[in-house]
């Protein structure tokens, strides 16, 4: 069985790494290629780059950024952020992404997942789901960078997405994102029960304890941004702690 993957996430806007709380109040955290290489040196198992730049010019710049990151990385690179169709996914793959994450476009047109899986293989297709609990505690899907709530239950959408062609789920808890309160373990367990593809847990990690708990709840990979960007943890430091807790990590 694979080791637990530790994945630093680069949220990119206009060619710079940024990080906020619940997708807001963005702070500048440096250059993507430099950050990605530094994390790879620390022992990162994969890099996820989510670029939310929406303009046409921004899209072209993003392809250049993907190429720059690719040249430096000898580990997998997943790229997402507003990927709207197969042509855009192909451009990202051609410029060096190994996997493409789709979110809102798949909600609007679920067939996109099948199209991508047929073209590139399902191991290239990551379904990114942002989930938020409603007042009744029901986990609902958010789209458009968290700005719109869909009438979709997170585990049900995950199951449908996998049936359509997604080979992996990137599950972000909007409630926990940037808060350091730990991953939403219940949400993770619910999605784990719904699908048999790998799940990347995202949103809320502050320490290795959160990551170990996510792995036990069924995550195959744990993603974090803030704790790596602000230097409170290195990937290597996290791995040491996880190994001490009996989890298999890549050394």
């Amino acid at each position: 069985m694979p080791a637990v993957r530790i994945i630093p996430c680069l949220d990119v806007r206009d060619g710079r790494v940024v990080k906020g709380v619940r997708f807001q109040d963005l702070r500048d955290m440096g250059e993507p290629a430099v950050q990605a290489a530094a994390y790879a040196d620390q022992g990162a198992d994969e890099i996820v780059m989510l670029d939310v730049t929406a303009t046409l010019q921004g899209r072209l710049a993003r392809l250049r950024t993907v190429g720059q990151v690719r040249r430096r990385l000898n580990i997998p690179l997943t790229v997402g952020g507003g990927v709207g169709d197969a042509a855009e996914a192909r451009r990202l793959l051609e410029n060096g992404a190994d996997k493409v994450a789709v979110n809102s476009a798949a909600i609007g047109r679920p067939g996109l997942l099948t199209e991508l899986a047929d073209l590139f293989g399902r191991q290239c297709v990551v379904l990114a789901i942002d989930g938020r609990r409603d007042p009744q505690g029901r986990p609902l899907v958010l789209s458009r960078s968290g700005s719109r709530q869909e009438d979709l239950d997170v585990p049900a959408w995950a199951r449908r997405g996998v049936a359509l062609g997604a080979g992996e789920i990137l599950l972000t808890s909007w409630d926990r994102d940037g808060t350091g309160a730990g991953y939403d373990l219940d949400l993770l367990a619910e999605v784990r029960a719904a699908v048999d593809v790998p799940i990347i847990a995202s949103g809320g990690a502050a320490d290795p304890g959160h990551m170990a708990a996510a792995a036990k709840a069924g995550a195959d990979a744990v993603l974090a941004a803030t704790i790596f960007h602000d230097g409170s943890w290195t990937v290597g430091g996290i791995k040491q702690e996880l190994a001490q807790r009996g989890l298999e990590v890549r050394s």
Partner: peptide, 11 residues
């Protein structure tokens, strides 16, 4: 009955 695709770092 296993996690599939097999995705990640395996010894």
């Amino acid at each position: 009955g296993i996690r599939a695709p097999h995705m990640g770092w395996t010894l």
